[in-house]
Design a protein around this nucleic acid. Structure first.
Lengths: 216, 216
DNA sequence: GTCAATGATCGTGTATACAAGAATTGAAAT
DNA sequence: ATTTCAATTCTTGTATACACGATCATTGAC
């Protein structure tokens, strides 16, 4: 348990939402949560407000908190923004790359390769996250890194869905290769372009997303 | 006063921070704030946590809240991200422009023109905000609009500083003209490019920022 | 039978009380 | 004089109690 109950609860409830235990639209009763986690309403309310700030739930005054249902279109919009931010991170990384960042990216990239070859989608899911985070860090813009990490976290469940699509694993890794090449070559604009299309969900990938959301 | 004290307090304290009444690094005592605003600590704590989520203050466990001091470099990073998001908004606006958005942009642009000609920096500050918001809305991406609005709000005080720089008013308006042309022409990439350089603070504008921050 | 009004009930919003960790101050020892 | 340790005080974190608005059900009228 984290040092204060509020943040611990935030993570607990967040996980419950991301793992779909609390489905979209579901009402979150403060007292129910309080007794479930063995605390009073006060830290529960703190956690709920933080989740509200993150954008996972909506708190309507005097009417309680409900889990937000983003809907395919909004998810598409979120990926669109994510693509833009990652593109920026990539272009900065390419221009500012130093040795530690280079090594971090290489290491994460290698781990992705192993997971992809093994066809281990769960491992790739994790390694992919590390790969992208390595690029955020390499941008050497702390603010950008924070923004990317936050949005990445929020998109986590949908990313997971995407990886289940046929061939997505190897396609994703191939795209990573191009991105790494561009960054290491110092080609910021190419890195930006590749990351944008890697992260965004254009064309058929959008229907893939909608389809996988329908069957969860 | 808003319907619940928490949000009202959030706005109150936020304004106090943005207007520099609570300076960077300053400690925010819950009881002091509570008695100042005539409420108990509970809504004060709620407001502080929301401000923490926004990024205006930092809450260290058991050690209270302090106003964050971004520092020139971090502000630069924030403008860099803002420029990217606005660029995206502009490019989407150019591709998706409809009649209501076109009218909204035109109206805001006209108001900017008047303020700029009058040399009224306060009026321009406000009209400029409306102009940019019109572009966010024209992107027809609700999520992007929210992100832009949020970041714009956070950068408000520094934007204000920037406008005080000599000739910035007319320069800014001239840039607006180009942006409007590109959007109305449906040239998404040009709109993106122009907005990026309009919003970002490259070169001498960065030293202008640092200088104006030092003398406030 | 349907709709509206009124009262009951439930849940959130706020205040206050209590617990526990951190900062501070003072004294003692080196 | 300086440093360290301990005790006190101050502030935050959590629980609980109370107030008020919203929702729901029941009853009455049309």
């Amino acid at each position: 348990m984290s040092e204060n109950a509020g943040r611990w609860l935030r993570d607990e409830i967040e996980n419950a939402i991301l793992s779909n235990e609390f489905g979209p639209g579901e009402r979150l009763d403060e007292m129910v949560l309080a007794s479930r986690f063995g605390v009073s309403r006060t830290p529960v309310r703190e956690a709920l407000m933080q989740l509200n700030a993150i954008g996972l739930i909506e708190i309507r005054p005097r009417r309680g908190a409900v889990v937000i249902d983003p809907g395919p279109h909004r998810i598409y919009e979120m990926f669109e923004v994510m693509a833009e931010l990652e593109g920026l991170a990539g272009s900065l990384a390419a221009r500012r790359l130093d040795e530690p960042s280079r090594q971090a990216i290489t290491a994460a990239h290698k781990r992705c390769e192993h997971s992809a070859e093994a066809g281990d989608s769960d491992a790739y899911y994790y390694d992919n996250e590390e790969f992208h985070k390595a690029i955020y860090a390499a941008s050497r813009s702390e603010f950008l890194e924070e923004q990317c990490t936050q949005l990445h976290r929020r998109l986590r469940p949908y990313r997971r869905l995407q990886l289940r699509v046929r061939n997505r694993l190897s396609t994703s890794f191939l795209e990573h290769c191009g991105i790494v090449d561009a960054i290491f070559a110092g080609d910021g604009e190419e890195a930006r372009r590749l990351l944008r299309s890697h992260v965004g969900i254009q064309g058929e990938r959008f229907s893939d997303l909608v389809a996988s959301m329908a069957t969860r």
